[in-house]
């Protein structure tokens, strides 16, 4: 996978959370993920096509998504309900959009599908292509979340 494709997603994540939830997200060290078990409770998954094809997922633990959604809604949210899951999908959509915007400036054009959402402890994330899965952990005030990028080589 072209590692130059990774940074736009890190920058997009930081910008989306800052703009929509006034939340600071600090990126950890990217690593190669070997299994399909999600590192959290709510995952948004979106397919992208264009320069290459693949999927992007964003998996939030309950602490991070509840804090982020509380800030987005302007009121405290304490349960992982359907609205919170919905928000996970929409945040994934926005991160994908922002990253694609950054990539387009470099001449790399991608299109995205409509995001889907999976919830539950130890749920699975199925990436549609067989490329390596690059995972980027993030820390926020409420907890952590992980972005996974799986693109065809």
């Amino acid at each position: 996978m072209d590692v130059a494709l990774i940074n736009p997603f890190i920058n997009a994540t930081i910008k989306v959370l800052e703009t929509m939830a006034q939340a600071e997200a600090e990126a950890g060290k990217p690593y190669l993920k070997k299994d399909n078990i999600a590192k959290g409770d709510v995952s948004g998954l979106i397919g992208i096509t264009g320069e290459t094809n693949g999927t992007i997922s964003v998996t939030f633990d309950s602490g991070s998504i509840l804090k982020i959604v509380s800030k987005m809604f302007g009121e405290e949210v304490t349960n992982l309900n359907s609205e919170v899951a919905d928000a996970g999908g929409e945040l994934t959509n926005m991160i994908s959009g922002q990253a694609r915007r950054n990539l387009e400036e470099e001449g790399k054009v991608f299109e995205a599908a409509i995001p889907s959402v999976v919830t539950g402890t130890n749920h699975q994330i199925t990436h549609i292509t067989e490329g390596p899965i690059i995972a980027i952990p993030f820390h926020t005030e409420g907890g952590s979340f992980t972005i996974e990028i799986c693109l065809e080589s």
Partner: peptide, 9 residues
């Protein structure tokens, strides 16, 4: 918007 969250925001 198809996402209730975005409609709410």
């Amino acid at each position: 918007d198809d996402f209730a969250t975005m409609r709410r925001i």
